[in-house]
Design a protein around this nucleic acid. Sequence first.
DNA 1: CAGATGTATTGACAATTTTCGATATAGTGC
DNA 2: GCACTATATCGAAAATTGTCAATACATCTG
Lengths: 129, 129
Amino acid sequence: MLTDKQTTPGRKPKPQSDDSCCTPAVFTISTARVASQVKLLSALADPTRLQIVEMLSGLDEPLCVCDIQANFVLGQPTISHHLKVLREAGLVHSEKHGLWVYYSLNRGMLEGTSSYLDGVLSKSKATAG
Amino acid sequence: MLTDKQTTPGRKPKPQSDDSCCTPAVFTISTARVASQVKLLSALADPTRLQIVEMLSGLDEPLCVCDIQANFVLGQPTISHHLKVLREAGLVHSEKHGLWVYYSLNRGMLEGTSSYLDGVLSKSKATAG
DNA sequence: CAGATGTATTGACAATTTTCGATATAGTGC
DNA sequence: GCACTATATCGAAAATTGTCAATACATCTG
């Protein structure tokens, strides 16, 4: 794995400058940030969960579990499991009212992942000169 | 029956004798777009692959497999597998030069996922009113 | 209280994913 | 041709994940 802090990034020489292949190109990548983003991306990387996120994003009002389940073929425990994954990733918020549990989107978390990807993209703009 | 069951959190009614819980809140969500984004998100939702993406994004020059592998404890076939996942998701581009295969980031794909998330967020701004 | 209903949890199983060792493929140089 | 190197593929073990049936929990109704 990558260490948390290392020396400056190297650059691989041409394939013939030396006998071996690799210069030790070591990068400084925050494994903590990567791990947190992997958790968010993993929560989103499932068709059922991503559709739930889309459903919640399209409405300003929260939805109860049965309303969500009505849009899938899956059973109620499966939907409950997916909602738990989204909840533990911080992507949704749940609120109990009587018998029902209402789920709403935590937009800040989605914004975080989107801006993380933007940050990765802007690390170097491919403006080689 | 059931008089005051907190009708505030949504247009969802309370349980009635004929209609138990749910109003059929049906959503029109493009399953094709969801599926394609799930593929991209799944490719990113792994610590090794996300770190590879970060490595490639920090450099304008492509990296060969051995340069990438040098930053991980994993074996060469495992790195090759992860690169294949990224390649098949369209997130990286590979180019063979002699013995070496150079990988570079396909920024358009990352931009696509980022703007997809932005699109989900902007579907409804949670502007009460 | 009992009965009904919405949701969460448990336990098990199948499918998928991650990883490694062995091997195959392809290019370089003798 | 042969040896060496970089990368990819194959096959299998281990870990993780998605799903369901059964059940538990919590809340409302009568």
